[in-house]
Amino acid sequence: MDIENKMKTSDAGIQLRPWLKLGMGLGLIWIMAYVVLPWGQTLPHIQPVMSAMEKADINAADYWYTQSEETARAQMFVRNAIRRKQ
């Protein structure tokens, strides 16, 4: 009886293990988002850059120029600026 119970418990443990791993993975993402990365932002060399980014409301995750509003303004400005009397 004991052996049977132990086997059932170990089966349940094996079945639970993947879900525990998934939970741990999600937990790591949570720790990264709420503990590690916010702490990193307070470091003296990182803080000024992050602060400038926050004020300018920039999304550093934009991976292509059409996702960024700033590229459009930059292009217009640069194009109009460099054609001035050279």
Partner: peptide, 8 residues
């Protein structure tokens, strides 16, 4: 990436 370039 563009966003990081703009941020920097």
């Amino acid at each position: 990436s563009t966003g990081a370039v703009v941020a920097a």
